[in-house]
């Protein structure tokens, strides 16, 4: 499904591009947002240089595979080109809605988990995988609302997608925790439902509390209960390539690397005793 190492990498964002290229810090791998490198020019040239140094994961935020409508052909074409140009170790996207009638939210919006949506999203995932000629991993969403129309939970929906499309899963442990706190999602049930073999990557990030909701801002260190849940997940499914994501109020590179080291220690524990 992917060729990422079983270590913790970091999400690379614009403030650290130059520093990473010039200092080449010891991190197992890097993940970037695909859309930041669409089309061409200097961003793609830089990414190709990074791909020569580190295993690279392309993480998409704009395809909106959870939309009732098909993915934008232009977006698919730009994405396919980028995959061809950098030959990443992993490719992932979100189970999220972002467009309808040619209008976009540029966000990761929740969708109703109905059988009808499952048919539509399966077709979208197949179309996306056909475009790049390889399976992709789909990430579980952080959500602030649940649709009353839903006929199943997100984990069941994802498990069905794995079955129908052969896609993999990217398990965001922070999202799982945020949903547990905001929506009362049953984390135990979710972990029991998600097919462990399909989980090819794990995300960790920090949230912010706003008006009684935990908002998945990726602006803080990973919180203690999320570390605890991560340990539990590792104990259950074994080590997986793991990523520290930080997208707002981005700290110095060393802070990111220190967070990744924490995850690496937990990965080592599981490897040694697992």
């Amino acid at each position: 499904m992917n060729t990422l190492p079983l270590t913790c990498g970091i999400g690379l964002r614009a403030p650290h591009y130059r520093e990473v290229l010039s200092t080449r810090p010891a991190t197992g791998w890097l993940e970037v947002h695909s859309e930041n490198f669409f089309e061409g020019g200097q961003p793609v040239a830089m990414l190709q240089r990074l791909a020569e140094i580190y295993p690279l994961s392309l993480h998409g935020v704009g395809l909106g595979l959870g939309s009732a409508e098909r993915p934008d052909p232009q977006h698919l074409a730009a994405w396919r080109r980028l995959v061809e140009e950098v030959r990443p170790a992993a490719v992932s996207e979100h189970l999220a809605f972002n467009h309808v009638g040619g209008r976009y939210a540029n966000d990761l919006l929740p969708l109703p988990y109905t059988r009808h949506m499952l048919d539509l999203v399966s077709a979208n995932v197949r179309e996306a995988q056909d475009a790049i000629g390889r399976p992709l991993m789909l990430e579980n969403l952080s959500s602030y609302l649940a649709f009353p129309d839903s006929e199943m939970d997100e984990a069941t929906f994802l498990a069905e997608l794995v079955q129908r499309t052969g896609c993999g899963l990217l398990l965001d442990v922070n999202n799982l925790y945020v949903n547990q706190q905001n929506l009362g999602t049953d984390v135990e049930a979710a972990l029991a439902t998600l097919p462990a073999d399909a989980i090819g990557e794990i995300h960790l990030a920090g949230f912010t509390e706003r008006n009684g909701l935990l908002v998945d801002t990726h602006s803080r260190p990973v919180h203690a209960p999320v570390w605890a849940l991560y340990r539990k997940v590792l104990a259950r499914i074994g080590p997986r390539p793991t990523l520290i994501e930080w997208d707002l109020d981005i700290p110095p590179l060393d802070t990111l690397l220190a967070e990744a080291d924490k995850a690496n220690r937990l990965l080592d524990e599981v490897r040694d005793h697992g």
């Binding site: 939309s67 009732a68 409508e69 809605f97 467009h99 309808v100 009638g101 209008r103 939210a105 966000d107 919006l109 969708l111 109703p112 109905t114 009808h116 949506m117 539509l120 602030y144 609302l145 649709f147 009353p148 129309d149 008006n211 009684g212 909701l213």
Partner: peptide, 27 residues
């Protein structure tokens, strides 16, 4: 219909003033 529901949801997000809809105001 999923597309109609998503259109309503997107409209509630983009509209100048949030419409009185089924979605939780905090969310």
């Amino acid at each position: 219909d999923p597309a109609a529901l998503q259109a309503d949801f997107l409209a509630a997000i983009t509209a100048a003033t949030p419409a009185a809809v089924d979605f939780s105001p905090a969310a």
